[in-house]
Amino acid sequence: MTIKSLDPRITRAEIPVDNESTWTPLPDMDQHETYEVFHQEKRGDQPTHVGALHAPNPEMALVFAKEQYARRSRCVSIWVVRTQDIHTIGIEDSDVFETTPAKDYREARGYRVGGKLTEFKRRRAASNE
């Protein structure tokens, strides 16, 4: 017995009603490997990571990236790279990026001359009197 559907294309495909019994599960890697996708919304923007997809090769990955990540929203360029080719310091190690107030000599906020300048002007004014 085959599926009788409202959709004539499905009826014509003569799909067995019980294809559950003959179906074999997808093997590993059936969906191919993963790529990470980066896009640039407009000129002047940083290219930004937008997500991932599955593809058998870089050419197909670009086709899928355009369909999945640039179908509606603005986009002027798109990059794909195999996930396995990306090297990371992951969020689980984000403490390596922490800093300490003792290192404020590396920051603009570590330099405050206002007090010295005020004091200097006060002394100058006093000696001129």
Partner: peptide, 29 residues
């Protein structure tokens, strides 16, 4: 049944595009 048919009938295409160097890594983010 329709989804199973689609997976089964498309499988040879996916098989033909497989390369030995492919390796599964979970997406990063």
């Amino acid at each position: 049944a329709v989804r199973r048919m689609a997976e089964e009938e498309g499988r040879w295409v996916r098989e033909a595009l497989k390369r030995p160097s492919q390796k599964y890594v979970a997406p990063l983010a």
